[in-house]
Design a protein around this nucleic acid. Sequence first.
DNA 1: TGACTTTACTAATTTCATTAGTTAAAATGA
DNA 2: TCATTTTAACTAATGAAATTAGTAAAGTCA
Lengths: 185, 185
Amino acid sequence: MRVTKAAVIQAASDIADKDGLNNVSLKVVAERLNIRTPSLYNHIDSLEDLLREIAHSGMRAMNESMTQAAIGKTGDVAIKSVGIEYLNYMIKHSGVYETIQWATWHGNEETGEIFGNYLSLLTTLIHSCGFNPDSTNEILNIITGFLHGYTTLQLRYAFSEPDRVRNELNTALDTLLVGVHIKYD
Amino acid sequence: MRVTKAAVIQAASDIADKDGLNNVSLKVVAERLNIRTPSLYNHIDSLEDLLREIAHSGMRAMNESMTQAAIGKTGDVAIKSVGIEYLNYMIKHSGVYETIQWATWHGNEETGEIFGNYLSLLTTLIHSCGFNPDSTNEILNIITGFLHGYTTLQLRYAFSEPDRVRNELNTALDTLLVGVHIKYD
DNA sequence: TGACTTTACTAATTTCATTAGTTAAAATGA
DNA sequence: TCATTTTAACTAATGAAATTAGTAAAGTCA
């Protein structure tokens, strides 16, 4: 009697980050934990369930980091801090992030809830900018969409030149926010 | 003697669009084509190879549609037309689009080339806006990043309310381009 | 201590992907 | 046209991995 559900998810996340999502198999996870493959079923329902759990754990960690990054800040500064933290997480946990993208297509209700927490954080920060509240959702979609797409497309460069990509993301967010301010101030 | 490589990719793409990426298996594709599973190896190298081919075929089709959408247009109007076409393709071929996202992580040189063609199209359109050529790449990253992220996050709504999402994408691109113009004109 | 629960194990089973080896149809080319 | 070569199909194995069934050990708690 040793392994816990959290340990399974942790082991699987580590493997995802080191070897990529399609090298996460029950066989490999079990080996990492020094148990037999069927024993994993005491902690998870299926491989697909495990992948979703990896994604959820990662999303919660991202939410936590981004929330920390926003503490004591408001407006554009806060939004940009959150954006940089989003990128930082992707760089540090690219395998988990790949799983999060997978969960975009194969998520369940819980996935939606956790994503909702992320949206809540951004919503609060958008409010702190003083935009017309009627436009909050429109702005939310613009910012979250941009952040997701920009970081994903730049991820390949972010490994070798993290500082450059971080700076360019910061500049790009400035540009985006200029447009948002003109349109919604 | 009947099936061709193109037919295999087409069948697999149809299955992806109808049942999602993780229901694309050699077994199912072979059944659709009325041949035995091993016969597929006359046309493809492996399941992973097939998935990449689905992605490549989809990316080429998107490039073609977007190029058509840009004909006879310049500047912001052209960029927005391309963006709408990008969204249209995703709505019509969500399974293939999921495969394209998969290929973001598991692509090869050819994947990069096809993506390069897309970047070339956008680069041309950005030039037609008259921005400082030194900033073309920065702008390219902003626009392609935004487009990818915004459409991906809105895809779930795009099935039920395509017109609303199309309109909002158009507005969002306007907002983004306002910022870009102020920053780079 | 004795019932109960948890978690691991071994032993199947199933489902696919993939490989090997064979055959017949189709294409090519003298 | 006819022989040669290529192509693409087939059947039969093989192998890897997920999942299920059934069992035993170890911890929990009354």
